[in-house]
Amino acid sequence: MITPNEITTAVSAAVGTLFPGEQVYENLVPREFKRPSNLVELRGIALEELSPRGVKLRYTYKITDFVEVDARHNSHFAALDLRTMLLVGLFAKGYLKADDRALKVISCTTEHNCDYTETVVGLSLNYGRAEFEPAEILPLMQQLDLKTKTKEDTTL
């Protein structure tokens, strides 16, 4: 199973390829952060039913893009627009590779502010339900199930 941290790293690496030499922060921006830069945050994970043996996890990421500001702390809107289009284009191919998996891009929306833009990306990945069972608990559950079935058979 791929972890959310591995997915966050993949999103950050993809954003970093768009803007070489710029800092890509994960989850937190320091007080005196550098511009231009980006912030990648995992905003949530949702579980969706797929089949009796499978589930889909939807990961929502927010990418905040910061550009240089002028003396009044305003950004150049044309630069923000161009960078936003680059971010949208990054996800336009429909998938994001993370480790040995490819997450499907299910949504990508942007919002502009005075000195930054936010791009919210939805990614999904299918899993088997068995992947969520800890390895130590599975044998115990199988033994319990066997004992329960044996007990039911002896009461007849």
Rank of each mutant, 00 (worst) to 15 (best):
L82K: 05
V105W: 10
D99T: 09
R31T: 15
M1Y: 01
A92W: 00
L87V: 12
T64A: 15
T17G: 01
P30M: 04
P139Q: 11
V88H: 14
P20R: 13
L125G: 07
L39N: 08
V55F: 08
T60L: 03
H112L: 10
I7L: 12
E131Y: 00
N74F: 13
L156H: 06
E48V: 08
T84W: 00
K62E: 15
Y25R: 06
L18V: 12
E26T: 10
A92L: 10
I106N: 07
L156E: 03
R83G: 01
E32S: 06
I7M: 12
N113Q: 07
A102V: 07
N5V: 14
R43K: 10
L39S: 01
M141H: 10
A130V: 15
T150L: 00
V121Q: 05
I63D: 09
L18G: 04
P20Q: 09
E48N: 04
V40T: 06
G128F: 08
N5W: 08
A130Y: 07
D115S: 14
K34N: 02
D70M: 10
L50C: 03
T84P: 09
R31Q: 13
A135L: 14
E111R: 07
Y61A: 14
K151H: 00
A79G: 02
P134N: 12
V11T: 03
N113F: 11
V105M: 01
E152K: 12
L140T: 06
C108P: 04
E118I: 12
Q23R: 14
R43D: 08
D153F: 11
